[in-house]
Amino acid sequence: MGKVVVVTSGKGGVGKTTSTAALGAAVAKTGKKVALVDFDVGLRNLDLIMGAERRVVFDLVNVIQGTAKLSQALIRDKRVDTLFLLPASQTRDKDALTEEGVGEVIDKLRSVFDYVFCDSPAGIERGAQLAMRFADEAVIVTNPEVSSVRDSDRIIGLLDARTMRAEQGEQIAKHVLVTRYDAGRAARGEMLSIDDVLEILSVPLLGIIPESQDVLRASNLGAPVTLSEPLNTAAKAYIDAARRLEGEELPVIVPFERKGFLDRLLGRRAA
């Protein structure tokens, strides 16, 4: 039986979709069978980040409504053959997802895949609640910034109240993934530190992804950063986070600012 992991945040634009793609690809590269499911009905983007936007024929809603089989809707990644994508639909109908339908799809995926990553839409409405409903674990993507931390706290409350596991009195394993971390700004006291975020949310840390141009470039090119540039800092941070998700105990190193003398003199920011 595979593990179902929801990638969620409450706030939009913090990096849920990018993180889903990067973590999923990193896990798949180790040989595990991984399915990435886009729950953002109406505003799908995981297909774009994965570079599969022109290969979408059927989607999650088609599968739920019975107009396509699950095997028809799953798109196999061209780079890693154990990685699959189930895209969201572009329909504007908010009620296109039913709890029963989502449950059936997740059950089928769970029986075939080692990991099922559910990319949650922003917000705390129906779509976000369905994305987390059947999860065993949650990755809470947070930026070190007040509104993101507040929304994460709200999402943690929902994870502990509205998931199937919570309702059955079981624990849902939660991890915080801090993204867009700027070591320089944190050092200057302009940004919440990792300790601040962890103390406030009291959820264990999965990893710290530094703010990076490489992540943006990977999105532009339609490739998860862990596949396209596995050696750069952000990709390494995602790969380590994926290993921790699989239960490996790796120490988390807080990124620090690498500045040369000239940079200091000129007050340049680290890249």
Partner: peptide, 10 residues
């Protein structure tokens, strides 16, 4: 000192 303020407000 803006980060400590953010922390306290949160």
């Amino acid at each position: 000192s803006s980060a400590p303020v953010a922390r306290e407000r949160l």
